[in-house]
Amino acid sequence: MNSMERITAMLNHQEVDRIPVYPILSGVTRKLVNATYEEWATNADVCADALYKAVKQFNLDGVVTLIDLSVECDAWGQKLIFHENDAPHPDYSQCIIQDIEDYAKIKKVDYKQSKRMMMHIDVCRQLVEKANGEFPVTAFVFGPLGTLSMLRNQEDMYMDLYDDPDAVKEAVGEVTKTLKDYVNALIDTGIQGIMFDTLFASGTIMSQDMWIEMESEAIKVLADVCHERGVLVMIHNCGEKPYFDAQIEATKPCAFSFLHPPAECTDFADCKEKYGNKLGLIGCVPPPMVVTSTDEAWVEECKRQIDIFAKDGTGYMLATGCEYPSGSDFKKAELMVEIAKTYTPYKK
């Protein structure tokens, strides 16, 4: 099986030759092309080259274009700060939404005016070309509420949700209109899927009711675009107790990338039991272990995840539950790939 066949089979819950693997190598891939973080995050040629090299060098089964969480907010002119060795982020001293009244200023904008969105679209186009059908390319898109939080700052936005929820919701609607065009443009590049980051749909942040009220309708609009155009919908949520049911209801995803057991489950085994035949499950090795654990502990954790999620030999991709630490070396990524290739208890 090549990677495309392996992932297709995994998502269809059919037999695979081995568990597919993707240790969410993103910013760290800049090291493969000797680029700074800023170069990697702003130059499509550099970024696409680095992500492609990672797939080839480490035998990854796909690529997710997680660049950083401030790609989308660039469309509204949010000032960003770039670093040599860290991910870009908004300049929170100069947020576009300074006051609760400023939500009314957020209107639909033309994504083509955003250098960062256009760069991401170019990255996807280049990767699809390089992949040539051998492995899937999945675009990563921050959800509407997340994008809005980058224009305000999370702490103030959380309080705004109580002080003037209608104002926030109205702005979410305008952001969604923009993201809808952006999603269509990403799909035009020939990508196989879009992974939406629904950061706030977890017990780490807000109640399920609040998330449903504030974002589920908006994320549904974006997911529907993908469904209508035959592109796979995936969800990424690395918060604790992610709300699986509410997100499945809204987006009907084929796969879920996560770090912690869902709110509806007692543990990962329960998650496999409840969702294993409905979703492709992607995860859930903790990225901090890349930095804090021994190689032996890392290998054991990868095996433990396979034992839990791949006991029936399918419907699972071994992955980190969030981005691989961008300051690390690639040793643990190589070990994870090795485990996916060689540890096959499901074949017994």
């Binding site: 702490e155 959380y158 309080m159 949700l161 109580y162 017990g203 780490t204 942040i205 807000m206 109640s207 609040m210 107790k241």
Partner: peptide
Amino acid sequence: KNEVFVPEVLIAAR
């Protein structure tokens, strides 16, 4: 106990 969340903590603290 996950009975209230970050927004509720923030407004209470305010």
